[in-house]
Design a protein around this nucleic acid. Structure first.
Lengths: 152, 152
DNA sequence: AACTTTTATATTGTGCACAATAATATTGTA
DNA sequence: TACAATATTATTGTGCACAATATAAAAGTT
């Protein structure tokens, strides 16, 4: 057996044999590339994701928003305050339940969607993958994500 | 044409049509699952990645380490100080070049590798994907990651 | 040697991420 | 009605991430 095929017990913790490491690194690198284009909208990547949820689904409570974007109150509470400060969302406690916090778009926030549709085009081809490979990747990630939350 | 197939200009910024969003969310969710098992080693996920690089490649400067794990000085400098405080790495300026910072494993850090090899097994099947799908995913992510850094 | 330029790491500032906990309003129950 | 349980968001504390900048050593230049 060739030397370079010899197995040892540490193979499992080699970076090149890990799945999570390229997942982690790739996510970071891609998100880093969003920074420049998103600067024009005054948004971070996470803020952009939150805005996408609001553009698509409209007014929601903080916790409903959290489910859509996989973030908890500890992250969303300060992030939403920053978005409010920027004037793109409103944070309102509904009269019928003072615990909840309804997040809605301001006119400025709604209008920002027109700028945002330029982002995907600007990010086109940022990943060194063919369109088919990108579709495969998305299918696999969607499946992996569906098996998250409560399970395992 | 059916209503639900109708296209509009905002389709490109729907969360369900994005590739980056499941990449980002999936990465976060998987890393979150590492937390409990890694607590026994006293490591965060990022620290675990840095330790894996050191276990595999041995003593390196900070910048060499940064290239391996896709992190810059702003993240690594404080992280390495924390690892030194825990007694698993040494930070030493070599005599021949006082600018560089050589990161090496202590005995304790080396010994930690024996505990670390239990982590991949503990994370087995955490992703709702078949072994073949995990291999496909890894192949795609590795390719995407290779096209990063300088390009696009 | 005095200087510029380059290299390598550290620091600063802003924001995300999340577990743990606190605070408060609502709902359920004795 | 009191009071326990639950639901919802906010706060706290630690650590990561990264752009921009600072610091300082080394190497190159005149």
């Amino acid at each position: 057996m060739k030397d370079n095929l010899k197995e040892n017990k540490y193979d499992c913790i080699r970076l090149r044999n890990q799945l999570c490491f390229p997942l982690y690194a790739c996510s970071k690198e891609v998100i880093r590339k969003y920074r420049k284009p998103l600067e024009k909208l005054g948004l971070t990547y996470t803020q952009y994701v939150v805005m996408m949820a609001l553009w698509e689904f409209g007014t929601m409570t903080e916790s409903e928003l959290g489910e859509k974007v996989y973030l908890d109150s500890g992250t969303l509470a300060p992030l939403l305050k920053r978005l409010e400060k920027q004037g793109v969302v409103n944070r309102v406690r509904p009269d019928d339940n003072e615990r909840k916090l309804c997040i809605s778009l301001t006119e400025k926030g709604q209008a920002l969607q027109e700028e945002a549709i330029k982002i995907p085009e600007a990010m086109q081809g940022c990943m060194n993958l063919t369109p088919e490979e990108m579709m495969q990747l998305k299918t696999l990630l969607d499946k992996a994500l569906n098996g998250t939350s409560k399970n395992s």
